[in-house]
Write a protein that binds this DNA or RNA. Structure first.
Length: 364
DNA sequence: TCTCTCACG
DNA sequence: ACGTACGTGAGAGAC
């Protein structure tokens, strides 16, 4: 990388990297800067340059992946092994995250890598306590989208979940006005992005940037989406209006999030508050649900005098150190507790899946 | 201590 | 013309 740049510099410094890429090598004349005047060198920016064949950018991306994994996980986690137990123990914050989610720190065990091949190797390091145990992982399937469907009561989205079809395929079929059989990978991929974007209040600009398509195409997709799922649009409008009048939004369980900026005269500031208004009831309801499930699971395990332990919660997933002789009883117990923890309106089904393995990666 | 980046859902 | 997808924690650099 030094040879390609023609200069030695700190590869880990975004400031220096930006100056090398954009001042010295002039890889992008229209490179954007942050509010403090540095060039932006985030992954999305670098990926666009790497596609154009700039080898040094590709190398930086690899460097970033490796140094992140090493510093945050490979070097740090062994330092945090408890002397008495020989294990790592996280702490959970129950009243920190504004939406009602749990927060994990010291160490954060809610962001253990899983996406890349090298990241998966880190996840494999999480193992059961001994040979008599296995790791068991149970996670909710598409929980936030199911909550969107049920809170909004959108007929078409509720129907898709009741029919048990793949939600992204069902969405693509409607947005592109084809049968589900005719949905291509490309169409499903884009529909998936729209589904997630909706949860966060994304607009045409964000979708276009995300998918690398034109704003015109993005707008068409979103317009079609709103036409096919009119209940979703109504939910967003109603929720923002509720927030404007009351100054807060709430989850199905009544957990409130106050939004002091919802009536701000500043477009940008108000926009943030509006997206918070849309997202918080969804993310927060999912958080309420899994908390209820955790209580239910714990009580049921206690009643059955089980020796297995609930170890971790990762927003839509519960991880257990399961005694092998209890697994057959434990699995259905967990799934039943998770699925019945909160009944969603409009009869939207809640489903959870469970896997087991000799490490956390296999358990998925 | 702030900023930027990046790991997860 | 503006800014543009939510919620977190942590490490490195820069000051």
């Amino acid at each position: 990388m030094y040879q390609q740049a023609g200069v030695r510099f700190n590869l880990a410094s975004p400031k220096q990297l930006g100056e090398v890429l954009f001042d010295k090598l002039k890889l992008d004349a229209s490179a954007k800067k942050t509010k403090t005047g540095q060039y932006q060198t985030g992954e999305d920016v670098l990926l666009k340059l790497a596609v154009k064949g700039h080898q040094i950018v590709d190398d930086i991306l690899t460097f970033r992946e490796l140094t992140k994994l090493k510093s945050t996980y490979v070097d740090a986690l062994p330092q945090m092994i408890n002397r008495k137990t020989g294990r790592v123990h996280t702490s959970y914050g129950q009243a920190v995250a504004v939406t009602g989610r749990l927060q994990s720190n010291n160490p954060n065990l809610q962001n253990i890598p899983v996406r890349t091949e090298r990241g998966k190797e880190v996840r494999k390091a999480f193992i059961p306590r001994d040979d008599d145990h296995i790791l068991l992982s149970a996670d909710y399937s598409q929980i936030e989208l199911r909550i969107v469907a049920s809170i909004s009561g959108d007929k078409n989205m509720c129907k898709a979940f009741k029919d048990g079809t793949d939600i992204h395929t069902a969405t693509a079929a409607r947005v592109y006005n084809v049968s589900e059989k005719e949905v291509t990978k490309e169409m499903r991929y884009k529909a998936k992005s729209v589904n997630f974007g909706i949860i966060y209040g994304q607009g045409a600009f964000g979708l276009a940037d995300n998918l690398g398509i034109s704003r015109t195409e993005a707008k068409e997709i979103i317009d079609n989406y709103k036409k096919e799922f009119p209940g979703i649009q109504k939910y967003m409008d109603d929720t923002i209006n509720f927030a404007r009048e009351n100054g807060y939004v709430e989850t199905l369980m009544g957990r409130k999030r106050w939004l002091r900026d919802i009536n701000s005269a500043n477009f940008t500031v108000r926009g943030f508050a509006e997206r918070n208004a849309i997202n918080s009831p969804i993310q927060g309801t999912a958080a309420d649900m899994i908390k209820l499930a955790m209580q239910k699971v714990h009580a049921a395990m206690k009643k059955e005098k089980m020796k297995s332990k609930m170890l971790l919660q990762v927003h839509d997933e519960l991880v257990f150190d399961a005694l092998k002789t209890e697994v057959n009883e434990l699995k259905p117990l967990i799934l039943e507790c998770m699925q019945s923890a909160m009944v969603l309106p409009h009869k939207v089904p809640v489903t959870a899946e469970c896997g087991e393995g000799k490490n956390w990666l296999e358990a998925h």
